[in-house]
């Protein structure tokens, strides 16, 4: 099956400390892939390189289609409301409607917070908005860095329903996490250890 995003021989060092020592990874269309590893294994570095927010020292990443990236810490503006964030990102992605955003607000159950500034929201609701902003343009590949931190159980289940819906429509999802509760959910599991992938 054709891959939507693939990394080949990705290397990255910070100063003299090598973090990634030649990582290969491939994500087929419609697949749910996990990259797991202990704290400091280089997971977030790998995801940033996949997302294009960080340059690799060597190797390359190939992307087919659009990309959505959800960083681990919510990147939001406390002064703006949920609705204003959605309008801002609709302009960024050049969308003509917010229909998909409305669907996501419903799916994650936080439509009631539309007019609330982000600084008044709980950590879990911020995380929902953080995720929504990576999804409003319906990307072909979704990169998620520890996406369910701060979610309660019900939201955790809704999150997986959302991911299942994405896969049914042929979208790929890459989840980076230090803990995998349910390995059977994933089509592929990459273990990152000392800067390399263990098959």
């Amino acid at each position: 099956m054709k891959s939507t995003i693939a990394a080949r021989g990705v290397e990255k060092s910070f100063g003299r400390r090598p973090v990634l020592r030649g990582v290969d990874l491939e994500v087929p269309a419609g697949a749910l892939v996990a990259v797991v590893g202990e704290n400091g294994a280089g997971k977030s570095t790998l995801l940033k390189i996949l997302a294009g927010t960080l340059a690799a020292d060597a190797g390359g990443v190939e992307l087919h289609g659009t990309l959505g990236y959800c960083p681990q810490e919510p990147v939001l503006n406390g002064a703006l409301t949920v609705g204003q964030h959605l309008r801002y990102f609709a302009a960024a992605y050049r969308l003509s409607s917010l229909d998909r955003a409305e669907e996501l607000l419903d799916a994650l159950h936080f439509g009631g917070y539309r007019d609330r500034p982000v600084e008044e929201l709980s950590g879990g609701t911020r995380q929902k908005l953080n995720l929504t902003l990576a999804l409003v343009h319906d990307p072909a590949v979704l990169l998620l860095d520890e996406p369910y931190q701060g979610f309660d159980w019900e939201t955790y289940l809704r999150f997986w329903e959302l991911v299942d819906g994405l896969r049914e429509r042929g979208r790929s999802v890459v989840v980076i996490t230090h803990l995998v509760f349910e390995e059977e959910r994933f089509d592929r599991l990459y273990r990152l250890r000392e800067g390399r992938i263990d098959a």
Binding site: G52, A55, A56, G60, E62
Partner: peptide
Amino acid sequence: RRHAHTSAGEPSSASRLTSA
């Protein structure tokens, strides 16, 4: 850092990041 003429929001055939 993605070596491409497209953004995340735009449809693209393929974009590529090679080493920096």
